[in-house]
């Protein structure tokens, strides 16, 4: 139905933005998608929350998923690293491929190591800042103290938090501000070098300045991993994303480059939502 094949996707050129990375304007035709979902259906008990979602996520690109609340965009994001399995009575049909490997055949621990996630509400553990960042590497077997310290510093730098916290690494993560906590969670996710980073409305609880910092961060991270961000803020999608998918009532209504979605959407529903005439 509304899903897009590779060839369609390569038609539009991602629009240029002042802060976007050098690679953004390159044609994508040759690059295979990092992840793709094929005819994905999702059920909470008897209720079907997602209908037949087919969608590709391109390597080293930011894909935004937008739509009104309850449209299924977060549910979809949560199936990409199978974190939905922590909720009872959920069921998935269809396939999700990571580098053409079915994620449902992969051990969840391995999968989630490769696909990091940042949640809507920042969720630092009740530990020190350093221990929060070191958590992922530690559970994945990094033991040597110098290795751990190195990965903590590198991850905090990548999350642009190092300068702010380098003198208080041993203090509780709860001493940080809301925006810093969210960047700490990003640093924590980056510490395991994920190939894909999922962000579930990461800025919804933050002020504009903290939001801008996180958006800057996403540009910088783009050449290191593939990013999928769920947002209800259309301006945010327009600012950061190369591709945008519009969800409505559990269906993917339209998927294309951000430029096309925001300037010349093909579907009436998309246009109504973008222009604020929705509902």
């Amino acid at each position: 139905m509304s899903s897009s094949s590779d060839s369609e996707l390569t038609v539009g050129k991602p629009h240029e933005r002042p802060r976007s990375h050098a690679g953004a304007g390159v044609r994508l035709a040759a690059a295979p998608p990092k992840m793709r979902s094929v005819n994905l259906n999702f059920y909470y008990g008897a209720f079907q929350a997602l209908h037949d979602i087919s969608l590709d996520f391109h390597t080293n690109r930011i894909t935004a998923l937008i739509g009104p609340s309850g449209c299924g965009k977060s549910t979809f994001l949560r199936t990409l690293n199978r974190i939905h399995e922590t909720v009872r009575h959920t069921r998935v049909e269809g396939r999700i491929l990571l580098d053409s490997e079915d994620i449902f055949q992969v051990e969840t621990t391995t999968l989630r190591r490769r696909i990091g996630m940042v949640f809507q509400k920042s969720n630092p553990f009740p530990k020190s800042i350093a221990d929060n960042v070191a958590y992922g590497p530690r559970v994945n077997g990094v033991r040597r103290k110098t290795d751990v310290e190195e990965v903590v510093e590198r991850s905090l730098r990548r999350a642009a938090l190092w300068e702010e916290v380098k003198d208080k690494l041993r203090e509780s993560a709860y001493a940080l501000s809301g925006g810093q906590q969210q960047r700490l969670c990003i640093a924590r996710a980056l510490a395991v070098d994920p190939e894909v980073l999922l962000l579930d409305e990461p800025c919804s609880a933050l002020d504009p300045i903290a939001t801008a910092k996180i958006e800057d961060l996403l540009f910088d991270l783009k050449d290191q991993c593939t990013i999928v961000i769920v947002t209800h803020n259309m301006q945010q999608a327009a600012r950061v994303a190369d591709y945008t998918g519009f969800f409505l009532l559990g269906r993917l209504v339209e998927f294309n480059t951000t430029e096309v979605i925001f300037k010349t959407p093909a579907r009436k529903e998309t246009e109504d939502y973008i222009t604020g005439r929705f509902g």
Partner: peptide, 11 residues
């Protein structure tokens, strides 16, 4: 082509 998976018994 369709793989079904159940959250209670993922594997």
């Amino acid at each position: 082509m369709v793989t079904a998976t159940q959250s209670l018994r993922p594997q």
